[in-house]
Write a protein that binds this DNA or RNA. Structure first.
Lengths: 115, 115
DNA sequence: CTTGTTGTTCGTAGTTTTGCGAAATACGAA
DNA sequence: TTCGTATTTCGCAAAACTACGAACAACAAG
């Protein structure tokens, strides 16, 4: 998603295209992570994976009141945001937090929430 | 939004309705706050109000590359989530963080992100 | 009371999210 | 290879989100 102002100025026969976006990359990243956490199911899953350990999709389906396919989409959402990762242990898939990005998220929230 | 399992059991001629929801209230609150922060514009506004001071809607419109009406909706979203509040200084409206809820959000993120 | 300034609300449009069940996929085991 | 298990992908529908401009509301100032 684009969130910037495009300003075009002409000097003589030169063309300048300058994008002035008051929203920083950090704020955009923060928003991306926040969005991923912005659903009860996903907040629950993250909580579980962060404070505890890895788990299988099936473990979650047993506990959560949603269809398997719906859970799968939430996991995909978290994966796309970079907060978790899944490794195949056929026929299961073990999900864990993506340490690197999780730490980045921690840093961002810490900074922007003034913690 | 409901995220729980409804389990109904019958004992003799008594009816039990029990809601078993693995997702805690804290996780739901966290998700609510995170959702509100989950857009670049809103992340920007929160950053501004939290790290700096209050500001008027007009101040933001000058800087942000979105229509007034769109900004107004984002501010409403933040207000509905409880993260900011607005007080009339006619004909302007001054927006500030809602201190009480902001602190709750800080606490929740701190706890659930393991900070 | 009229005007100008500041924001919100409304109507509309297109996109994304959320959710489900059914079908498809992946893969070890028999 | 065929079967069973675990999970994803597909197709669909309803709801929510994002965004805009036009119209409206609030109110101080003249």
């Amino acid at each position: 998603m684009f969130c910037g102002k495009i300003i075009v100025r002409n000097f003589a026969n030169m063309n300048f295209k300058m994008q002035i976006d008051p929203i920083t990359d950090e704020q955009k990243k923060l928003a991306r992570y926040a969005k991923a956490m912005g659903h009860p199911v996903r907040a629950y899953v993250l909580d579980l994976l962060a404070n505890q350990s890895c788990c299988y999709s099936g473990d979650l389906t047993e506990v959560l009141p949603i269809a398997k396919s719906t859970l799968s989409q939430h996991l995909k959402e978290l994966k796309d945001a970079g907060l978790i990762q899944g490794q195949t242990e056929a026929p299961k898939i073990k999900y864990c937090v993506n340490k690197e990005n999780w730490e980045e998220a921690q840093k961002l929230f810490k900074k922007h929430l003034g913690l």
